[in-house]
Amino acid sequence: MNLNEKVIAITGGARGLGFAMARHLGARGARLALLDTRQEALDAAVARLAEQGIAASGFVV
């Protein structure tokens, strides 16, 4: 599956299964839009992904 430069939105993406999916898909080249209810959790998740070279942005919903 080629995910290079594809943007994938993940609800609950800052923690648990959502974050696990984000790491998995991001490692395969996807750019991520993480959607969650807590800004602090999103900021931490985006930072952790960036450390792994994965492009992600967080959005509070």
Rank of each mutant, 00 (worst) to 15 (best):
A41Q: 14
A55H: 11
L17C: 05
A44F: 09
R31I: 01
L49G: 05
A56L: 05
G58I: 06
G26W: 00
Q39H: 09
M1R: 03
G26P: 00
A45V: 06
R48L: 15
A47G: 13
Q39G: 04
G29Y: 01
A20I: 03
L32R: 00
K6H: 01
D36E: 14
N2S: 07
A22H: 04
N2T: 01
I10D: 04
M1L: 12
L32P: 00
K6Y: 06
E40M: 10
G12F: 09
G18H: 09
A22N: 04
Q39F: 10
K6L: 05
A30T: 01
A45Y: 01
I10H: 03
L42I: 14
A14M: 11
A55D: 08
G18C: 08
Q39L: 15
A30G: 00
M21V: 13
S57Q: 10
L17W: 00
G18R: 07
A22C: 04
A44N: 08
D36H: 10
H24C: 06
R31N: 07
G53N: 04
I54C: 02
D36A: 09
R15Q: 12
Q52K: 14
A20Q: 06
L35T: 14
T37R: 15
L35R: 06
R38C: 10
S57K: 11
L25Y: 06
V60R: 14
G58V: 02
M21Y: 11
G13T: 15
V7Y: 03
F59C: 14
R28Y: 08
A9D: 07
S57R: 12
L35F: 08
A22Q: 06
G18D: 04
M21Q: 13
R28E: 14
N2I: 05
A56S: 02
Q52P: 11
K6A: 06
A20R: 07
R48K: 14
A56T: 00
N2C: 04
G12N: 10
G53D: 00
A20P: 05
R31F: 01
G29Q: 10
I8G: 02
M1Y: 11
H24P: 04
M21H: 13
Q52T: 13
L25G: 06
E51G: 09
I54K: 01
R23F: 02
R48F: 13
G18E: 07
G12A: 12
A9I: 05
E40A: 12
L35V: 15
L49M: 09
G58S: 09
A55S: 15
A55C: 08
K6N: 07
F59E: 12
R15G: 08
S57G: 14
E40Q: 15
E5D: 13
E40T: 13
M1A: 10
A45M: 00
F19T: 07
A14E: 07
E5R: 10
R15P: 07
G12K: 10
A47R: 10
Q52M: 06
V7D: 04
V61E: 10
F19A: 04
E40I: 14
I54G: 03
R28S: 08
A41L: 12
A47E: 11
A41T: 09
A20G: 11
R31M: 05
Q52W: 00
G29E: 09
